[in-house]
Design a protein around this nucleic acid. Structure first.
Length: 429
RNA sequence: GGUGGGGUUCCCGAGUGGUCAAAGGGAACAGACUGUAAAUCUGUCGGCGAUGCCUUCGGAGGUUCAAAUCCUCCCCCCACCA
């Protein structure tokens, strides 16, 4: 492979910190290396916050190496306190087992697991059978409590009111032991992770040095925040998930289209595989052109998470309701996005059904908006309407109890809108 | 185990008998301005077909015309002591 992973990651903005810069680069010159990242099975789906590590593993694979995605089935039972102000709820084994399954299927969209090109392991396999005394004598003796309590990852908790429980204090040992195990079994000498993982990664590197007299490496990613300061992956409805059942592709696409101007270039580099030669300078575009770049960003990220077909549908649905779906061929030419408006029946704007009977009676507007999910309650819907934020087929609703009836049906549909950008289509049946 | 301090609406946090659906901030939503961006200003921000009714202040009881506020018991958190 021509490119060194370090160069790729550096150029695309993935690197916060690395250990042994020079040796690491040399180590990665040779193809077929292994590297692991841990994923917490605390939910049944990964969300956008995990995208950076996922993409990093994918790049690792593209550079000719063998990534290991490690599901924390064992560590999840303990809970990582790093950077957290509160102790996490302990999950049951069953829940973690279930979640692991979902995570595996999501990862396989980004990483090719067939033919031994990547591995998916679960640390429950070696952690759950550990014997306490043996573990303490073999592993525990290499850890200095004096050093551990100075670790940044524990600091916040040690200073907080809630404190740090003993089970969480052990987390670092377990993660270090993971690294050691993967080193022994798969010759894995590189671990990557979020910047909050630095302490845990270094602990593993130390353990390998002490027990195997060998050098291992670590890379951490910066915490990705939006330019307005928010953590990645939160939308008005909560986390943006990779699971289509939790966050439909259309919403996923919308999340990315709504990217802040200042983030477009950075996000294209981080969250798509488009060549950097095309991405560079995109941030300087303005107005319509920058919006087109956002559409490409949204299309590409949606394609990665949900496939080309869903991405195209989301793109078309957006073009249908918002208009202006054009993307100039000069912008990010490598993207497979359709360059023209393609209003299509396959459009996947959120929708639901209403019966003709109900419509003949007429449905009060505020009830309709509530039912369609555009307002959290009847009261919220009334407020929405009173504030002039509710539209039926593009016309503002003037009174909360306006009756919506058959005369609002156009081509078998009624298009509801809340505010400027939340659409909901009612199909009459 | 002892002593003291706490648990308030999505989050932080005021409130120590009626004027409390509960200050203030954040988040969020809507309007104006725009480019499905940001910033700014304004409004909204428990539920209800609604100038009223209902449900909320850790849980269960109680006192009172009236309780987030007082009393009893219980649960949980924190600090110091052991």
């Amino acid at each position: 492979m021509s490119d060194n992973l370090i160069d790729v990651l550096e150029e695309r903005g993935f690197i916060e910190q690395t250990t042994h810069q020079k040796e690491l680069r040399e180590y990665l010159e040779e193809p077929g290396r292994t590297c692991y990242i841990g994923f917490d099975p605390t939910a049944a789906s990964l969300h956008i916050g995990s995208l950076v590590p996922i993409m990093a593993l994918a790049h690792f694979q593209r550079c000719g190496h063998v990534p290991i995605a490690l599901v924390g089935g064992g560590t999840g039972l303990v809970g990582d306190p790093s950077g957290k102000t509160e102790m996490r709820k302990l999950l049951t084994r069953e829940a973690i087992e279930e979640n692991s399954v979902g995570i595996k299927s999501q990862l396989s969209r980004f990483i090719e697991f067939s033919g031994g090109r990547a591995m998916l392991l679960n640390n429950a396999d070696w952690l759950c059978g550990l014997e306490y005394i043996t573990f303490l004598r073999d592993i525990g003796r290499h850890f200095s409590v004096n050093r551990m309590i100075k670790a940044e990852s524990y600091k916040m908790r040690l200073e907080s009111e809630e404190g740090l429980s003993f089970i969480e204090f052990n987390y670092m040992l377990l993660q270090a032991y993971d690294f050691l195990t993967l080193y022994d079994r798969h010759d894995c000498r590189l671990q990557m992770g979020g910047s909050d993982q630095w302490g845990n990664i270094v602990a593993g590197i130390d353990l390998i040095r002490r027990m195997r007299q060998d050098t291992a490496f670590g890379i951490t990613f910066p915490l990705i925040t939006t330019s307005s300061g928010a953590k990645m992956g939160k939308s008005e409805k909560g986390a943006v998930w990779l699971d289509a059942r939790r966050t439909p592709p259309y919403e996923y696409y919308q999340y990315w289209v709504n990217t802040d101007d200042r983030d477009v270039e950075r996000f294209l580099a981080l969250f798509t595989f488009l060549p950097m030669s095309e991405i560079r300078g995109i941030g300087k575009l303005e107005g319509a052109e920058l919006n087109a770049a956002k559409r490409v960003l949204a299309y590409e990220t949606t394609r990665l998470a949900h496939g080309a077909e869903e991405a195209a549908k989301a793109f078309q649905a957006a073009a249908a309701v918002f208009g202006s779906g054009q993307v100039d061929p000069g912008i990010l030419p490598s993207s497979g996005i359709h360059r023209q408006d393609q209003t299509s029946a396959a459009a996947s704007v959120p929708h639901s059904h209403v019966s003709l009977d109900e419509l003949q009676q007429g449905i009060p507007a505020f009830k309709l908006f509530h039912q369609a999910g555009l307002a959290a309650s009847g009261g919220a819907a009334r407020r929405l309407i009173e504030q002039g934020g509710a539209y039926v087929n593009g016309n503002r609703v003037t009174a909360f109890d306006d009756l919506i009836g058959v005369d609002s049906v156009i081509d078998g549909e009624i298009m509801l809108r809340s505010g400027k950008k939340r659409y909901h289509k009612l199909l009459v049946s």
